[in-house]
Design a binder for these strands. Structure first.
Length: 269
DNA sequence: ATGACAACCTGTGGGC
DNA sequence: TGCCCACAGGTTGTCA
């Protein structure tokens, strides 16, 4: 479900409800996520005060004085704050019970998400991540250099977490449309100038989506339980067979690495 | 090193 | 109505 804007929206929604609170207990109903939920997580977390909540790529890091809980929402995960007494619904796998009668509840039908306990952000899953897309390190020049000699399609290149983090299928499609670049063009055959445009497009699309509270296609809700409204702004994703909003050409769908790609054959070259 | 692909899961929607 | 298949917002690991 979530790409970077949805994770960031979740982070912003949760922060006011959990930061400063202490953890009373942790209830793990289902350990079998992408990786098993660490057996010592409840012990590590119980009694700790939550000092802050950060995001790195699509990971959420909830800090305590002893270490941090690292949560990934995978494809279908969500985190919500609710009264701890709320009866658990199907796929409610983890509760972090707070000291005010509320709890932070993790739901994930597909169980592609994960929980880790990390110290000092030293974790293999964080180690090899590329730059944040909304940071100064994400530049056209860097993309251009890194792409030389690569035959991989530019869309796949853009979705490679070692190149830049947080750009998933929806926003890769949208950013390439905005930049006027065909998703199936070889990454190594795109000019420096066009990569500069692409960086701006990625940033504009992600920032715009964060501003709208993310994209709700089916059932995504942020930490405050509200859906996102970016779906109304989508130019190509999910619009194959419909007309390009810019030139009225019929949008074309292809599959790349078994993911849906939609683009305008006229506007994107 | 690179790039294509399978794998991990459940739920939903379309076609028949 | 029911059944089967394709597909869904992600990422890692394997293989050629």
């Amino acid at each position: 479900m979530p790409e970077l804007p949805e994770v960031e929206t979740t982070r912003r929604g949760l922060a006011p409800h959990i930061v400063g609170r202490s953890v009373q207990q942790v209830i793990v109903r289902e350990r079998r996520l992408r990786w098993p939920v660490p057996a010592n997580l409840p012990t590590r977390l119980a009694g700790q005060r939550l000092l802050g909540i950060r995001r790195r790529a699509k990971y959420l890091l909830i800090d305590t004085a002893r270490g941090s809980v690292m949560v990934h929402l995978g494809m279908s995960g969500s985190l919500r704050v609710m009264p701890a007494a709320t009866p658990p619904f199907v796929h409610d796998h983890v509760d972090i019970v707070l000291d005010n009668g509320q709890c932070l509840r993790y739901n994930d039908p597909r169980r592609f998400g994960s929980f880790h306990w990390v110290l000092g952000d030293n974790h293999d899953l964080l180690r090899h991540l590329g730059p944040e897309p909304l940071s100064d390190e994400f530049t056209g020049g860097a993309l251009y250099q890194r792409s030389r000699g690569r035959k991989i399609a530019v869309k796949s290149f853009l979705m490679d977490g070692k190149v830049v983090v947080g750009v998933g299928n929806i926003y890769a499609n949208e950013a390439l449309f905005m930049a006027g670049i065909r998703p199936d063009r070889a990454a190594g055959r795109i000019s420096a100038a066009r990569y500069t445009t692409l960086v701006s497009s990625v940033q504009a699309v992600l920032a715009g989506a964060i501003d709208k509270g993310g994209t709700t296609l089916r059932d995504y809700v942020g930490g405050d339980g509200k859906p996102g409204y970016f779906a109304q702004q989508l130019r190509v994703y999910g619009r194959d067979g419909l007309l390009c909003r810019q030139c009225t050409t019929v949008l074309k769908a292809i599959r790349q690495n078994n993911r849906a790609t939609v683009f305008c054959p006229t506007c994107q070259r």
